[in-house]
Design a protein around this nucleic acid. Structure first.
Lengths: 143, 143
DNA sequence: TTCCTTGCAAAACTTTTGCATTAAA
DNA sequence: TTTAATGCAAAAGTTTTGCAAGGAA
């Protein structure tokens, strides 16, 4: 039988396990942030995470949210996206994929890898190697 | 015979003409910024532009640099890039192209269109249309 | 005169940092 | 006991804005 998990929240115990496996000490704040972010593939800003946690009654500081998000990103638990210049977005989907970005609404939508294929890519310049490919397909609302 | 232009600077007269054609009044500050940026394909930050102009003895304020860059971008004269989260980069190459971004050095290098080919791209979600495609190939120094 | 542009300073925002306090190993 | 994590406030950095002054049409 499937274990049930509160909506919008991954199981705290499994998050604890995941953090420990990454060598990250599972403090209460970190587990809460992980539970929120890793519950499903999504894109959240630091401010959104802070507001959501506080609305839920958690005691967390802004500094801890930023520290934790950077820590998670360094360990490959989440991915930091630079899509618009206004702020960072943290993506809980760390598998390879691309993005739609709607210029009209700001919406950010995942594009699965199989939906994109490159028939030609440039070689990395001498002395360098490719570390990753970020593809953002900008959208606008059709009139 | 070719007309000669100071290195790192497009001809002021031709910049004036270009601004006028776009419906932008060619004020001294705008012409200086255009001359600097449009002299060649390059990526500059607002702060770099401000520092360069002031070092050259120009009287320009930070607000004017930002206002002007946003104005140019709105008119399609330059392109605003979001490559890292730290600041905006203004690209004088407005033709279609992509970018290498070296994570080790921060360098930003143009990738011409013919070096990339997509054999498969997703359809835009209902009600939207594709406004553009941003491709950033992240590099790291090879050891 | 009227409208637009500029410069300056201040404000607005996001993110980082210093440091005392608290909690955990 | 020793190390690491947290909260708070302040700092740092980029970009925007308000407003008075200046310049062009």
């Amino acid at each position: 039988m499937e274990s049930s998990v509160p909506s919008g929240c991954a199981d705290a115990k499994s998050c604890e396990r995941q953090l420990t496996e990454c060598g990250i000490r599972p403090t209460p704040q970190r587990v809460r942030i992980a539970s929120l972010l890793l519950s499903q593939p999504q894109h959240l800003s630091a401010e959104q995470i802070l507001a959501t946690l506080r609305a839920a009654g958690a005691r967390v500081s802004k500094a801890t949210v930023y520290n934790t998000l950077n820590l998670f990103a360094d360990h490959g638990l989440i991915r930091l996206l630079c899509v618009d210049g206004t702020r960072a977005w943290f993506d809980s989907n760390v598998g390879p994929h691309y993005h739609f970005h709607c210029l009209s609404t700001g919406a950010l939508i995942d594009v699965p890898v199989p939906e994109v294929a490159f028939s030609r890519l440039p070689a990395a310049p001498p002395g360098t190697e490719v570390a990753g490919i970020d593809l953002v397909i900008r959208l606008r609302k059709k009139m």
